[in-house]
Amino acid sequence: MSYLGFSKRWASSLAAAHQLGEEKQAELAYAIEVLAITFLDAALTLIVGWILGVFWNTVACLVTIAAFRHNAGGGHSESPWRCALVTMTVFPLLALAASHVSMWEPLHLNLISLISIAVGFALILIYAPVDSPKSPIISPIRRQRLKRLALIIMGVISLVIVGLSFTGWDYAPEIRMCLALSVLWVSFNLTPWGHRLWCFIDGLGYKQERRCSD
């Protein structure tokens, strides 16, 4: 198992203190790494969102994407640092784009909402759940359950998008566009093109061409 140095060290000292075996030590290292990367990514993303003046829009994008990806999965980077860099760039940019797009005509906002809902459902039905070689989904029952949960989550997101269009709340169009654009981004991550994009990002800066495994 290849984990970052701090995850291995902390897991090793916790395992030694409680006389745990290698298997449990690997689980602890995995959990530490998941928590550390999630908090680091979220914190950096929110800081960039705050600097750009779209903090709450970034929160809306982050929540939507987290809910969607937890069951549907998607393309991944091979490097935690490249992942952090892309996450802290893409999410606030989605939030910023949403604040600009929200000033468009209501007809255009409805059209974007409709397209994002249709694309979200269609790509979940075709591709979800998308696992990775580092986290394979072995059980067909679990695969079905994740697909069902992904569809339910997409249903809830759709209800919120539609519901926001009927409220008189000043920020409703912005939040609605945050959800719609976030759905388009995570849906794209389910597709083979999304995987190719991550493969391209992972290959940036390397002289030799990296080959995609998808």
């Binding site: 690997a26 994407i65 987290a66 991944h76 952090a84 580092k134 986290s135």
Partner: peptide, 15 residues
Amino acid sequence: LCVVGHYQPEVPASL
């Protein structure tokens, strides 16, 4: 399955 970011640490065989 990872949530916020786009990096998946290797899941131990037991999980």
